[in-house]
Amino acid sequence: MINNPVYRGRIIFISLVVMFALPAIMAKTVLSQHWYNSGVTNKGELIEPHSTLDSFGLTNPYQQQQWQLGYVIPDKCDEFCQQQIYLLGQSHIALGKYQQRVQPVLLITPNSDSIETPQGSYQRLEVNQEFAQVVGQFEFVIVDPLGQLVMRYPKVDSTAELVPQSKGLLADLRKLLKLSRVG
């Protein structure tokens, strides 16, 4: 029966269909069942949907000039908050050759605590409640030179997590700066 040319042709045809269709069917199943975790390398959370400072009614003092690494000052700036502000400055210093392309910024909401920082060490940017709904208290945010909010780094729970978060933020920012020609 195998020597029958019609039967042999059907076997070859079915084998070819299975050979090409099976990987597509398997891929569709893996993706639809969420068995696959994509190879995301960023440490922060991408801000979706697309948001800009202009969309919140804010003016960008560094429009077309520099990236911004911002930190939202909370209602009460305690020792944890002060450590995050310190790490904001250290992250800026650690950028090395990219340092001139980034401006560290303290983002002040209407409810933010009034804090004293060394003169000239950080720029301040007043933000509104709409902005505070996207990027909350104790959070870092990366803003590109076009005023688009790119990534946010949610509040960590302990001081032990601050340094790994800062390293992740620095790695993401370096990648963005390396790939970007803006600012």
Rank of each mutant, 00 (worst) to 15 (best):
D144T: 01
N111H: 06
L177I: 00
A24I: 13
L58K: 07
S32C: 05
Q64P: 00
S112D: 11
I85M: 11
Q148G: 04
Y62A: 03
D113Q: 09
L58F: 03
C81F: 02
I14C: 15
F140I: 05
G39F: 07
Q84V: 01
G120I: 00
S32D: 08
N37Q: 15
F80T: 09
A21K: 05
A94E: 12
H34S: 15
E126I: 15
L46H: 06
N42M: 09
Q82P: 03
C77T: 02
D54G: 08
I2M: 14
I108F: 10
V141D: 02
A24K: 09
N128D: 11
L169R: 09
M1A: 14
T109A: 10
M19W: 10
P104L: 01
H92L: 00
D172R: 02
Q64V: 00
Q99R: 11
S38M: 07
E139V: 05
G9W: 11
S15Q: 05
S55T: 14
N60C: 00
K28M: 13
N42D: 06
L149T: 11
H34D: 09
C77N: 08
I47L: 08
V141E: 03
N111M: 15
I93C: 01
L162H: 02
Y122M: 02
S158F: 12
V102R: 01
N3M: 15
S121G: 00
F140C: 02
G168F: 07
R8P: 00
L69T: 08
V18F: 14
V150E: 08
N111T: 15
N42R: 10
P145V: 05
P61S: 08
I12P: 02
Q123E: 07
I93W: 09
A94W: 06
V163P: 02
V17H: 04
V135M: 06
L95W: 09
L69E: 10
V72R: 04
F20H: 05
Q100T: 09
Q129E: 11
I12S: 05
S91M: 08
Y122V: 02
Q90F: 06
P49H: 09
D113P: 11
F80R: 14
D144M: 00
C81Y: 04
P23G: 06
K178F: 03
L149N: 07
V143E: 01
L176Y: 06
